[in-house]
Simulated scan of single mutants.
Amino acid sequence: MHRTIFTTPVVAPLLRAMSTGFLRLTGWTVEGHLPPSAAKSVFIAAPHTSNWDLPYTLMVAFALRLNPYWMGKASIFRFPFGGLMRWLGGIAVDRSKSNNLVAASAQAITEADGPLQLIVPPEGTRSKTRYWKTGFYYIATTARVPIILAYMDYATKRSGLGPVFELTGDIDADMVRIKAFYQPFQGKNATQFTGD
């Protein structure tokens, strides 16, 4: 995978200190840790209701010493911001093409030399949606890596990593359990997220 802000010498430690300091000063609590067995994993990122989720996610990732990559719509990777978005860990997703995103994502995780956490917002949009996309589930299954339930709760200013989610192979039942975990959390735009 390409070099990111999290793997750039000198810059990464400096931004880690700044991120940790900013989160503390603004009242945010960072919780959880990444188990060594989940160094390669897929993160569910929910609720996703605001553009503010990206900078906060990056700061929390620094605080937790993660090496995350995230998927974003291709339009935000256009000139002049494309290079910056990739450096921030972004991977462009062209929703107009029927390319096999699951296979490509799973292959990237499998072939990565070191730790790699792929952040996937299951809602697929910041707008209100009742149905979650299941790409994260199939990426994890194909790559044979665990799913981590990552969260950001603007109501309580808590963000971090929840438990490692054990897949049963019954996607309908698993989705019910996953969404139940996210039920208490509130996005920045609370009315746009439903955990049921």
Rank of each mutant, 00 (worst) to 15 (best):
A17R: 15
M18L: 15
M18T: 15
T20L: 13
G21H: 08
G21D: 05
F22P: 06
L25N: 04
L25A: 07
T26F: 14
G27A: 07
W28E: 01
T29V: 13
V30I: 12
V30S: 04
G32W: 08
G32T: 06
G32Q: 07
G32L: 11
L34C: 12
P35V: 00
P36M: 07
P36F: 05
S37D: 14
S37A: 15
A38S: 15
A38T: 04
A39W: 03
A39N: 13
A39H: 13
K40S: 01
S41T: 01
V42M: 09
V42W: 04
A45T: 08
H48F: 03
S50L: 11
S50Y: 13
S50E: 13
N51D: 06
D53Q: 02
L54K: 02
Y56I: 10
Y56V: 07
Y56L: 13
Y56G: 04
L58M: 13
M59V: 05
V60C: 08
V60N: 01
F62W: 08
F62Q: 06
R65C: 13
N67M: 12
P68Q: 02
Y69E: 02
W70E: 00
M71A: 02
S75K: 15
S75N: 12
R78T: 14
F79G: 08
P80N: 07
F81I: 15
F81P: 03
F81K: 01
G83T: 02
R86N: 06
W87G: 04
W87H: 14
L88R: 09
G89P: 09
G89L: 03
I91Q: 07
R95Y: 06
R95G: 07
R95Q: 08
S96A: 10
S96P: 09
S96C: 03
